[in-house]
Each structure stands twice: as C-alpha cells, then as structure tokens.
Amino acid sequence: MSMKPIPRLAGLLAACSALALAASQGCSKKDQGPPQRPPMSVKTVPSVQMDVPIVIDTFGHTKDRMSINVVPQVSGKLIQTFIADGAVVTNGQPLFLIDPSDYAARVRQAEAAVAADQANLELSRLTLERNRPLLEKGMISTENFDTLKTRVEAAAAQLQADQAALEKANLDLSRCTIVATISGICSKRYLDDGNLVAAGQTLLTNIRNYDPMYVDFSMSEQYLPLIRQALAEGAVRIDITPRGDTNSYTGTLDFVDNAVDLQTGSILLRGLVPNPDLKLWAQQFADVRVQAGLVRDAVMTPESAVQLGKQGAYLFVIADDNKAELRPVKTGVRYNNLIQAEGLRPGERVAVLGQLMLYPGAVVADVSQSKP
C-alpha cells in the first residue's frame, strides 16, 4: 500500500485552516464598524451680551477753524517785524510796524485844525451874543443877525469835520502797528523789512487758528437717518486718528450738509475737535470714527468666528457634549473686533480657531479649556 498521498492531505488541511482563520479575522473587523475620527482641535470664546455703540468708520481731513491773511490797512515802509516764521501768536499781539512818521505828522496837522475850529466857533458864538441886544433895539437888521447865526453853525460843522479827520489820522497812526486779529500759528513772512507795502494789497503773513480744529469727512447717505436721530438725542461723539499718528483725538459732530451729493451718494459732515496742545495740523488725512447711537443688549462674538456661505452668515457653536453645531446668524453692528450675531445666545461657546475644517456634528477638543 502506497503512503505518498498523506503529505498532500496534510498540506490541504493546513491551507483550509489558514483560510478559516483569515475569514474569522475579517468578520471580526467588520463587526467593529468604520474607524472613528479623532476629535478636531478648536479654540472657543463665549458670546457676550452688552450695550454696543453704533460706530461708523470713514476718513477725512483736518481743517483750520479760521484763516486770516495779514494785510496792512495803511501804506508805507515796513520798518520792523516782531515775529519769526511759524510763530504762535495771540489775539492783539504786534506783528509788524510800518513807518509812522508821516501818519504822526497828519495827526498833529489834524489837531491844529481842530484847535483853530474851536477858536473860530467860540468867536462866532461871542459875536452872535454881542449882537443879540442890538437886534432887540433895532440897531442891526434881522438879515445881518441871521448871517451871524449861520457863521456859528458853519463853524460848528467845520469843527465836526476836522474832529472826524483827527480821528481818522489817529486811526491810521494806530494801524501802523499791525496786530494779530486771531490767535493761531503764522505762516512764513512774505516780505522783509525795508519794503514798501500797499494798503489792502500786500500780503505779509497768514494766521491759522487751530484750536479747536475742524475735521471734514463724508459718509454714505444710508447713514443719514441714523446721524440725524443721534443728533436729535444729543451730542454725537467722533474720534479721529491722523495718518501716521498713534493717538486719537475726541470731538463732536458740528455740521451736516443740507444736501446729498448726487454723483457720489454721500453727504458732507464736519467735526469739531479741541486742540489746545496744537498736535493737530491743517490738511492732515485722518481716520474718523463716528459713534452714532447705542444698541442695547446685543449678543457679540469675535468677527473671526463668522463665515459666509450660500445661505448667508453662519458660525459653529460648540455644545456641552463637544459637538459642533452649524448656526445661521444675522450680523449687525461691529465694535472692537466683535460683531453682533442675532441667533446666538449669551454665553454659548463659539469656535474662533480651527472652525474652517468643522462640519455639523463634528466632535471637537476645546483647547481653550485645556489646562497648561
């Protein structure tokens, strides 16, 4: 009897055992289901409920509140300058001096004319009074007496005219000293001493008043009802930050134009900003923030949490079981990197980091709650 088939049978049995083992392992893996995804790391911030100012951001430029060209009111030779280029001056401060010699002589001449007129008037009155008794006695005619009365009236009129001329001469003499009519900062001087100046024509310098400072800016007409309502309730605060300056300066809204620009759909506004330290300069570009009201009990969340989809704005709320919920929201006012989110409740955890990879129902690990 041959024994050769025995090794073949043993090999066949071993192969069957291996297949059975593999099949049993495969069934075990199917029973375990699909592999679980690890939790997604996110950072959350709780939403907060607060009163939020309605802020409108725009830009504009600073403007001096008042600008005066310094021009002489009398002609003559400029003999002295009392200020340096760019000087800070106060109202009434002397700036320039025009040679007063000619005008002083005119004053003396006018004074002499007034003195002569006073003497002539006094003589005319005495003559009139001396002839009054003669008229009563019929020793002079009424016509001659009327002539004496006319001389008194003419002398009085001449005195008034020369007194006015004296006032004009004194005024011209005082105008030889040119003074600042406003407080502010001077430009450069446009003329050196020794030059002749013409009344009402020669520009000597310019003075700009910088305290307070105007700020001109514009905004879309859609904000006009909001601005008008805020003005009706009281002063409207503005904050400006000049370009290149890290400081902000606070003022109030001072003016709203009476018409909307048809070409741009915007409206011109002006703010008034105190500037006692003269840190603001005219014609500076500045970012302008207008606080046009207050939203009460707004639910706010970081702007980075809000995403935009086909259905509008949404964000991810992390529930107590650390699962992500997609929550549609309606956005509102913005303030200090926060945004109003209607549809969100106060205190709910909102994903602000790692939210771009989230999906509804995703399990998350909130790293903001992990201990260091």
Rank of each mutant, 00 (worst) to 15 (best):
M40E: 05
L203Y: 07
L196Q: 10
D257W: 13
S28T: 07
T62G: 09
L269S: 04
L224H: 01
Q73M: 11
N144E: 15
D239H: 04
M40I: 10
A230I: 00
A161S: 15
S141H: 11
K149H: 05
G271E: 08
T205I: 07
Y190P: 08
T264P: 03
I182C: 04
G347I: 08
E325P: 03
L121W: 08
K279Y: 04
P53E: 14
E342C: 12
Q355H: 15
R130F: 15
Q36I: 02
I79Q: 05
P372N: 11
N275Y: 03
G33P: 02
Y103N: 08
R349I: 00
V114S: 04
A156Y: 08
V364H: 03
I185W: 00
A199V: 02
L95G: 03
L308M: 13
V273F: 03
S47Q: 02
Q73D: 14
L231T: 05
P39M: 14
K30I: 12
G361S: 06
E348K: 01
T127G: 15
G194W: 12
F59S: 10
M50E: 14
C16I: 15
Q291N: 08
V367F: 05
Q284E: 09
A23D: 04
E111W: 05
Q158V: 00
D192C: 06
D211T: 00
M219F: 09
